[in-house]
């Protein structure tokens, strides 16, 4: 598709992803589950710097223990916190990378993802409780609740932000905790408009499982409708209308992992204050200029 046509199509695009009738009830239950999160410990990370402190936070998740990195400026009083989610192919961001937010007066927490990347198709037949992605999203909410318990952090001023899969997690965190999300930003968010992602042939990261599912278990697509209905519980498009805070989206128009139309599906549904910045010659990658945009967005 030519660039101009693509941009027009993005403006008009509406996703056909199904929204299960009990979507809101299911996620209300998951939020309640996540709200029981307790911070178990917060220990110095062994890095020293006169202007910021570095710590490793451990918090409960049902029977599991999750870990996050935390950087906080050495200031008095409670500060807002950025929740920094990584893309599917990237480990938790480094301490030096995270430090950038401390210069602006924000604390920043980044979850350490453990184990293998969830398979989007895993648990679909017993959806929604058994969906692997539902657990991953619930972990994003757990981080949000854990952040609010930390001393020196204003739990009502959280700013979820992420790239790719991290962008999806940021949207989920903002959507499911609107009372705590001050702003939300994403670059190339993944897992939006899952039927379109499948149709486009994207089978990287969590989406690898969808291709495998159809090839191995349902080659004739006899249960495709039920399958995509199940995916509706974890399709980011279905969280978009719950986002109440200002939302910044950056989209590389050559993004082949999170296609621009799929990102538009998400963006077009967000009801409130929102801003889309497109970069015609960028793909699914770091965009220097978007970081400047993010800096401006975080201000004020």
């Amino acid at each position: 598709m030519e660039l101009t046509a693509l941009q027009k199509a993005m403006a008009a695009y509406e996703s056909a992803t199904p929204r299960p009738s009990d979507f809101d009830a299911f996620w209300a239950g998951r939020r309640e589950l996540a709200s029981r999160t307790e911070v178990l410990s917060s220990e110095p990370a062994g890095i020293e710097n006169p202007a910021a402190s570095y710590s490793v936070v451990r918090y409960s998740a049902g029977g599991r223990t999750l870990t996050a990195r935390c950087v906080r400026p050495r200031t008095d009083g409670a500060v807002p916190a950025v929740l920094l989610f990584s893309d599917f192919d990237r480990a938790v961001r480094g301490w030096f990378h995270m430090s950038r937010f401390a210069a602006l007066g924000f604390a920043v927490l980044a979850p350490v993802r453990e184990g293998v990347m969830p398979d989007a198709a895993a648990g679909w037949r017993d959806a929604p409780e058994e969906l692997a992605l539902a657990e991953l999203y619930t972990d994003a909410l757990r981080l949000s609740y854990a952040a609010a318990q930390l001393p020196g952090i204003d739990g009502g001023r959280l700013i979820p932000w992420g790239e790719g899969l991290g962008g999806a997690l940021a949207v989920v965190a903002a959507a499911m905790r609107p009372e705590a999300a001050e702003k939300c930003a994403a670059l190339g968010p993944a897992l939006a408009d899952i039927p379109l992602l499948w149709q486009t042939g994207i089978d990287t990261g969590p989406l690898a499982g969808i291709r495998r599912h159809f090839r191995d278990e349902d080659p004739a697509h006899r249960e495709a409708e039920a399958f995509f209905h199940a995916m509706g519980y974890v399709d980011c498009v279905n969280f978009a209308k719950l986002v109440r805070c200002p939302f910044l989206l950056g989209t590389g128009l050559m993004d082949s992992l999170s296609p621009p139309l799929a990102q538009a599906a998400l963006f077009n549904i967000v009801p409130g204050e929102k801003q889309l910045v497109t970069y015609p010659k960028y793909a699914h990658e770091r965009i220097n200029e978007f970081e400047n945009e993010l800096l401006r967005f975080l201000h004020g």
């Binding site: 710097n49 202007a51 990378h97 430090s99 950038r100 401390a102 210069a103 220097n288 400047n292 800096l295």
Partner: peptide
């Protein structure tokens, strides 16, 4: 390339 973004470079002020 070019100098990295204003945000990326901010890690240094965060160190004083």
């Amino acid at each position: 390339g070019s100098s990295r973004s204003w945000l990326e470079l901010s890690s240094f002020p965060a160190m004083g």
